[in-house]
Design a protein around this nucleic acid. Structure first.
Length: 567
RNA sequence: GCGCUCGUAGCUCAAUCGGAUAGAGCAACGGACUUCUAAUCCGUAGGUUGCAGGUUCGAGUCCUGCCGGGCGCACCA
């Protein structure tokens, strides 16, 4: 408590004070931890005061006693606490809720305090900051980013911002799968398109990459090298040419992905190459290590990892019968690498699509075998995105061409609407995207509702400057309207919302919050004139506007959305 | 078949450890611009939280079964 005093926000201070007032009582009752863990929620919406707690109900379920009677005794204890009495009055309602009515002056002071904290309001609330390495998107470098990737990019980047805001040291990494059969296939496909562009009769590999993109890459490479590699390709693509097209094609793809992600306001601190991992011999080394640990065994000509010893439902191949390591082996090496770096990460977070969820337990099993004393990596599974075309739901597929690219999404609805839209729903429900509708509906994207509130405030601020408005001291102002109470309360919960979004890994709480806050502001705006009010009222309301502006801008920034000054 | 996951208003989604009358936005309907931006506000309507049981003071939330959608069940990545 003491070490965080500088960053303590009103709600958590109030929470501690309430807990302190009833600590002895709860200890007598033997409800361990309740004095620190009880829920304090905003309640004004329901007309039950400003804040409420269900602690009597929780205690009742432990003690098997009447909640209302317990509530009476809790409130009695609270009334004995003079400092708490200075903040609020209390009452019992319903089955045993305790409602708090905050004194107006307390709300005014809390708002002013939040404003003074400026960019630090709600920040650095993490009790024990961690060094976190997040890995997400990690699209194969063989094509364009589509809206599925965009969803993870928006989700992962937002989560990164949120975790960093509350005090963690967070790095984002993109894992490049630039090794293996898929890449050979990709190189051969681009080589074939190159040859075709030169007028040669060369077929795409049987299961090669179709669609426009390899053609585009081939064309681009032809612009760079002309017909220099013509001889390497006819009549069939040779290893040397495939290597070149693989390499150069991959480089171009990555450059374009970077540029596209940059436009989407997603930046990775590191791009990690799987091929580089192989060059360093890491997969081989980790396999040796697993053998030494007695975790690997030979069967049917392959080398297996005994993942069933660590909770997986079957054992997994590390080295294939043909001597090649599996993707799994290199992925283990990759995770070992993450943990072995000089940064000494405390925690790894991987964000994977639902199509990889079968893979989770084997990676965890491998890491458990190698690092029995460390926390296992946290793997977040995000659901997929379907594309709706002509009213029909289709899974995205590069081959079938039913894919909407990130580029198209941004061209259609823009960065702000796209990021808000993608992050606004829980990552664990599938998302159906109808581009036609999205384009039509972008006008009514809730992001504009939120941004409009921000722009309105700027308008007030500009007007205040133009009129040379001189604020006066509003200490003692306590004639709060219900709209002001609601607005202040909404802001005071911002730190809790951020904290909840962080621990639950749920950035969508920020978009929901920003919408609520914008709503509270719009209501306030219609009922409470700012500059036309009495000087003291005007001064307070102007500060309140500044606070709302800061909080909306921060909420949007945490999900990578801009806060315009005018619309 | 087995495993994971989701199912909430016409649509898209919320709902903090199991708590008060399940909430927003959009769409629909009715009102509000002589005002700091009407991209807004106020109001009305809209629900057997997929179905059936169970646990308990209390279940959208936990447990069991069923129905439906998605994903997975490789010596692919």
């Amino acid at each position: 408590m003491a070490e965080n005093a500088d960053f303590a926000d009103f709600v958590s201070v109030f929470h501690k004070r309430v807990g302190g007032a009833v600590r002895g009582l709860l200890a007598d009752w033997g409800t361990p931890g309740l004095e620190d863990d009880f829920v304090l929620e905003p309640a004004s919406k329901r007309g039950h005061g400003d804040l409420a707690t269900n602690m009597a109900l929780v205690a009742a379920s432990h003690l098997r006693q009447q909640p209302r009677q317990l509530a009476e005794r809790l409130v009695e204890a609270m009334r004995l606490d003079a400092r708490l009495r200075d903040l609020a009055r209390f009452e019992i309602a319903g089955p045993g809720f305790i409602n708090f009515h905050l004194h107006a002056s307390v709300l005014v002071n809390a708002a002013r305090d939040a404003l003074v904290r400026g960019s630090q309001f709600g920040a650095r609330t993490q009790a024990r900051p961690q060094k976190i390495l997040m890995e997400f998107v990690s699209a194969n470098p063989t094509g364009e980013l589509h809206v599925g990737h965009a969803r993870y990019a928006a989700y992962g980047d937002s989560l990164k911002r949120i975790l960093a805001f509350i005090g963690n040291d967070v790095a984002a990494e993109f894992y490049i799968n630039d090794f293996g059969a898929q890449m050979e296939n990709f190189g051969a496909s681009v080589a074939a398109r190159y040859a075709q562009a030169l007028g040669l009769e060369v077929e795409l590999p049987a299961d090669g990459y179709r669609g426009e993109y390899p053609r585009y890459l081939a064309e681009k490479i032809r612009g760079e090298i002309g017909s220099r590699l013509r001889g390497e390709i006819e009549p069939a693509t040779t290893g040397k040419a495939v290597d070149f097209f693989k390499q150069r094609g991959c480089e171009i793809v990555l450059e374009e992905m970077k540029a596209e992600l940059d436009r989407f306001r997603v930046r990775f601190d590191n791009w990690f190459s799987e091929a580089g991992l192989y060059r360093s011999g890491a997969p081989g080394k980790v396999v040796e290590k697993l053998k030494d640990l007695g975790e690997a065994f030979e069967k049917e000509g392959a080398l297996w990892l005994k993942t069933t010893g660590h909770g997986d439902d079957k054992d997994r191949v590390l080295i294939r019968g043909n001597g090649e390591p599996t993707y799994f082996a290199s992925d283990i090496a990759y995770h070992v690498d993450k943990l072995s770096r000089p940064e000494h990460y405390d925690h790894l977070v991987n964000i994977w699509g639902a199509d990889h969820h079968g893979y989770v337990s084997r990676v965890k099993a491998a890491m458990q075998a190698l690092f029995p004393d460390r926390d296992e990596p946290e793997i977040i599974i995000g659901q997929l995105v379907n594309v709706i075309e002509m009213g029909e739901r289709k899974q995205m597929s590069k081959r079938k061409g039913t894919m909407v690219t990130l580029k198209e999404l941004l061209a259609g609805i823009g960065v702000d609407a796209a990021r808000f839209f993608l992050v606004d729903r829980s990552h664990d429900s599938t998302l159906d995207l109808d581009m036609e509708k999205a384009r039509l509906k972008s006008e009514e994207n809730p992001v504009y509702y939120v941004q409009y509130a921000h722009a309105r405030i700027f308008s007030i601020i500009k007007k205040a400057a133009a009129e040379n408005f001189k604020p006066v001291d509003y200490a003692g102002y306590d004639a709060l309207s219900s709209q002001e109470r609601q607005l202040i309360l909404s802001i005071l919960f911002f730190p809790q919302v951020v904290q909840g979004a962080a621990t639950g890994r749920e950035p969508h709480r920020l978009t929901a919050y920003s919408r609520d806050l914008a709503g509270a502001f719009h209501t306030f705006y219609h009922n409470c004139p700012v500059l036309k009010a009495e000087p003291q009222t005007a001064s307070f309301r102007l500060d309140l506007c500044l606070l709302v502006r800061n909080t909306i801008a921060r909420s949007l920034d945490l999900v990578g959305v801009s806060a315009p000054e005018a619309m």
